[in-house]
Write a protein that binds this DNA or RNA. Structure first.
Lengths: 332, 332
DNA sequence: CTGTTAGCGCATTCAC
DNA sequence: GTGAATGCGCTAACAG
């Protein structure tokens, strides 16, 4: 029985009345205690307790034009790759008093546009995008708005504002170089069809120097798609020696399918993933993969936005967090 | 160069001026087109384009006392179990114009309390919690506030408000019954130390009738903890026949550790997980597990909150979404 | 250190 | 169908 619903929730004015001070003093006692005497602070605190006051940040934000929220756009929350970034971003922002507002674009540019509009309507103090902002219209709108914006998990010459990421082409090229040094000749690619995975694939084939068999599945990729991908690659190249996968989930599927076909990993087939998921080091055989510090991306993005909100000049910052290949048993 | 930053973002008053109507007419043209003539609507729409107007929902919400946001509290976003729920919740809410504000409690009751306070300060139109609200103080506060609240992924006689979940004791008991019917005598449990996993463990041992070896690891559990858990269980009971795991990640670790010790699954050791993650059906052997429809939980939670916001009387609804054991190869 | 004044941008209420 | 007045709850800017 929510019997107390009809009672208006107390406002700062109520607190001020009970404490015997003006509303602005009550406001300062709570938000800016340095400007108020200790005695007054105590009285206001008591009044808060007595009235059961809960601040209304919406009203505060209207006047101060600071909503203390940051919007975060991801293709889908279930994309494991971004989870450490979202987690560290949420925590770092929360520590500074900001809340994360989450939106899912579903890998859909039109939906991304619409989502940005609804997000901006909430006047976030910053926006973090997993990936780059795709549509030209949205890029222009965001640029004009001047809301601190961090694009992540990618690299471009022309970020809308700030960027924390790395080059996917370089990742692909690095894996191709690694495969070359291993002396493998007949290699294939299992990949999702999203933008960043495609960049890695381009980087790989570019460095490899000639076309290789490719099995493409819909993003977000998973283990089942990995199993299918290996089947298709083997159809194209029965004597396949190594596969580069656009995610560890895909790689896990490839390894499982290989083992269940009686292929030994890595002796008969080597496998390399991307992401260094928690399970990669625990698989049997353990998975060689490309490690990216997703948590660091989230922390850096949070720091950039918080800095901007404080008025610090962080410039048109572009941070390349890099990556590294973690060699494990699946590549011998 | 965010050169346009100094220019104030246009308000509804600017739109009205350009359109040659009063602010309230402009407001109605956008929010309530039925009350305005088609001609006026067209003029206002043009003015919106011309000015680059973006509505300010903070200001609107202040007057209408509807923020069009819903707060969502999870222990950690990286807990895979809740991902389908968060995803479907976000989508269902977005379809109705609501945005999700995300908070992480970190399995910490004090932090949960603080988080609820900051969330409530943003005046969400609803709150969805992964799990139950733990602290008595928070329960009471939320009850008094009267904000539509949905607790999920659990069951209790005394929900704060609404609830969409299932009984973890029943899950544990069902798995114990399944193990009994299989005729296994020497069984063990690998479990995380969080509240819901503990309930499942209690349900299991209660139905089993006597204590069994247990390996407890810190939540959130993962594959590495699963491998360790099996090692510890085998120390306690070298002739172990079956293991019940509190998550599929844990189960995957147990299976991997078993195989790498030369044990055959399921002939030498049977394994059952919880959650029916995407990889469960794709593992080799495929994993028997407990399936819960996490997406349905999110959809139902969204529907309940949206219904309440519309003033529909959904009552003190408690929905038991149930669960089912999916038998696969890992239990023979 | 504290108070007064004046809005932030919009939607509710009542008029016409 | 449209408009004027008013205030949601809070804080910036200026006084004292």
């Amino acid at each position: 029985m929510n019997a107390s619903r009809p009672f208006k929730t107390p406002t700062l004015a109520d607190v001020a009345r009970v404490a015997g001070v003006s509303p602005i003093t009550a406001s300062r006692a709570l938000a800016n205690p340095g400007l108020v005497s200790a005695k007054t602070i105590a009285r206001v605190r008591e009044a808060v307790e007595a009235t059961g006051y809960i601040p209304n940040m919406l009203a505060g934000g209207l006047k101060s034009t600071r909503s203390m929220t940051v919007a975060c756009l991801v293709p889908a929350i279930s994309v494991a790759q971004f989870l450490p970034t979202v987690q560290s971003l949420t925590d770092a922002l929360a520590a500074a008093g900001y809340q994360l507002v989450l939106g899912q674009t579903g890998y859909d540019h039109a939906r991304e546009d619409a989502l940005i509009d609804t997000m901006v309507a909430r006047r976030p103090d910053g926006i973090v995008v997993a990936g780059l902002v795709h549509s030209a219209a949205a890029r222009q709108k965001l640029h004009r708005l001047g809301i601190p914006l961090v694009e992540t998990w990618d690299l471009t010459e022309q970020p809308v504002d700030m960027l924390v990421g790395f080059s996917h082409q370089q990742v692909g090229a690095a894996v191709a170089g690694f495969f070359t040094r291993k002396g493998w000749k007949r290699v294939g690619i299992a990949t999702g069809d999203d933008h960043r995975a495609s960049l890695r694939r381009q980087g790989f084939t570019g460095a490899w120097g000639r076309e290789v068999p490719v099995a493409v599945g819909p993003a977000p990729s998973n283990m089942a798609l990995g199993r299918q991908a290996l089947s298709r690659l083997i159809e194209q190249e029965p004597r396949l020696q190594a596969v580069y996968c656009s995610s560890d989930q895909l790689a896990q599927g490839v390894v499982t399918e290989a083992l269940s076909r009686g292929l030994r990993v890595p002796q008969d087939l080597a496998v390399c993933g991307f992401g260094d998921a928690a399970f990669a080091s625990q698989m049997e055989p353990s998975l060689t993969t490309v490690q990216v510090d997703g948590a660091a991306i989230g922390e850096r993005a949070a720091a950039l936005i918080i800095g901007r909100c404080k008025g610090e000049d962080v410039g048109e910052s572009v941070t390349d967090v890099g990556f590294r290949i973690v060699e494990r048993a699946s590549t011998g």
